[in-house]
Design a protein around this nucleic acid. Structure first.
Lengths: 209, 209, 209, 209
DNA sequence: TATGAATGAGCATTCATTCAT
DNA sequence: CATGAATGAATGCTCATTCAT
């Protein structure tokens, strides 16, 4: 363990994520992070330039991960606009359920992170959604007069559910309902609850979980 | 200036809101707040117990204001579920446009505010929406299998638009699009863009702005 | 109550004395003094120049009172050195029993009060004692090679007993014991316990209490 | 300078003692302590929890030191009650001469220190004295009807002399006079000035200093 | 690379004092 | 005289960052 250790970097990041999710930025002491991670305080600075840098990477990494996952999933096969949208929603919800701390984290991050890379990633997601809707508009699947607004709404959607309502709701139901809300707002109203459930199963590529 | 002055409290709150909207919590100096408000630093502590207390009230007051406004508006006349929902959306959007700083503010607040009163207010809004949808379900206006999820989504909707997209979009268009998204997700899909615009005008009771 | 009110001055002084006796100087807030006394904070400054001024007068007044009492008692009749010393001790003990708070107060005052008047008063007492001893040395009643040290010791004597031991000891016993200690150290050892008690009764001019 | 350094703790304590002896508690700035000690301000908090904590330990340590010194001295050989008492006095006087600042310090501490450990130490000393007198009473060396009062008086004795009179008096003379005062009050009056001086020399185990 | 003692700029908070009413 | 809201200088304390080992 004499060379920069990716394992240790992960350990620090995970520990920090846990703490940042619990209390707001200015109440998280690097002393605590170091102690909780079982490393020296100085070690943090071997892996991260500053507290803000550490904070930044937590959010950025998590977010990038989702986007990547989405893009890789979507880049492969040929999905209709409708299927694509469902996948996006499913993926975001899954991510939310899998990383409740990180969602909490992203919540309080917001305006602090002015870094260009971050805005870029965010726009990547919004654009992904917007393009999908526009594609649906063209193909006749959708009929949304303002894809840019709808695209902006989707992440906020997610956040609300994840942060304040996920207790007691199962992942499947949430995906279905959000899909329903969005698809209906976006196209002409077709798609029953049963169809939704079937389609979602297709989209997520899972059978039960 | 001999009795504790509600005007001065407001002045301080407004000044603080401006600064908290600009930079994150830990970068706002009470020195600056005092200077900007034109009062002594000690005066802040006459009206607020601490920096966090000040911060808390900013958010709480702003939020309460919206809820109150909504409740007072809805308590009066007799509106259909559909009209009520439109008014809620219109009011939230209006508030967002009127107080861009505060929305930014609320964003970074999140997990800090564990105060019961705050959660109560939030639930008040969600309940207001949920009840409206349920009412619509009963009256046949809506057909939403999960009003609780939809209700949870609405505030997140708003936030997204306000925080990242409002530049270049006018209030009216945003109201219309969100209304469209929600109503279609909630009922059977009727309602054209034109109808929406008309209905919104009715709901907000304004003619142009 | 429109003119400077001696009653109010006393009220403030008494209240302050109580608080200063409870906690150390820097923990007594004038806010508390004002509140406890039931007057406005500004009123304190009508009667006292500053916090330190208030503090000073509390001690000074109390101390002056003892000295005065002693001098007036001793100035009148003609007492032997021995009787005089007993009276001084009796008076100091009485004062201690009557004003337990103030003794506590004087304790923590010490080095803070550099005021000349204060040192003067203290020296007045020490000198009174020293002169008495010297008088006794000359008259043959005492035989103390270092009256100045003995004189310096007496107040410290008092303090110890008052501060840490008075609980459970009655005034009479304390006077007797201290008198015994001092007189024996000062003269040749005569004076039995019984004699002491009798003499003390003579010296204090009281019959039982 | 990598391990927490007891030397540095001592340095800080010594510096603080000097300042606290000069001015009252609330006028001593930690900035000054740090500057005078040649360490960073933050370093103070590495070794002491707070200003009051620092203050506390100054007094406590100094007092403990005397008690320890006494107990270790007395625990060794077999001394008569009379010799023991002389040693106690000699030790206390020596301590006062060696640490004039600390005696000043202890003076203003008083009611602040409610800590149990502190009261315990104080009682340890008083008990030590009281036991010695009782031992003398039994052995016939002393004849003191109230050892508990006498014991309470001794520390006060010391304080007075140290604080207000030591200027111009040499250590030896003070020891002799106090011993004289106490022993005579405690036993039957024998012991001349010359004998005292001789005995003290024996008790302290020093020949001149 | 890993550490944690040392640091000091930075900041929230206090509280004696003032003064307009 | 009486008041208490307003004040701001003064200061204790924090905590991200550094650097010698």
């Amino acid at each position: 363990m004499q060379r920069p250790d990716e394992k240790k970097r992960q350990l620090i990041a995970a520990t920090a994520a846990k703490l940042f999710a619990t209390r707001p930025f200015h109440k998280v002491k690097l002393d605590d992070v170091a102690a909780e991670a079982g490393v020296g305080k100085g070690t943090l600075y071997v892996y991260f330039k500053s507290k803000e840098d550490l904070y930044f990477w937590l959010i950025y990494d998590a977010f990038s991960q989702v986007i990547e996952q989405l893009e890789s999933q979507l880049g492969r096969g040929e999905l209709s606009a409708s299927q694509t949208l469902r996948r996006i929603i499913a993926e975001l919800v899954k991510f939310g359920f899998d990383n409740p701390q990180l969602f909490e984290l992203m919540r309080s991050a917001g305006p602090r992170i002015k870094d260009e890379r971050w805005e870029t990633k965010r726009k990547e997601l919004v654009t992904l959604i917007e393009k999908t809707i526009r594609r649906g508009n063209k193909s006749g699947e959708f009929d949304d007069p303002h894809p840019e607004i709808t695209a902006l709404c989707l992440p906020g959607f997610m956040r609300s559910v994840m942060l304040f309502g996920s207790r007691g709701l199962d992942e499947r139901t949430v995906v279905v309902q959000i899909t329903r809300l969005v698809e209906r707002g976006v196209c002409g109203g077709e798609g029953s609850d049963k169809n939704d459930k079937r389609n979602v199963a297709v989209a997520t590529g899972r059978n039960g979980r």
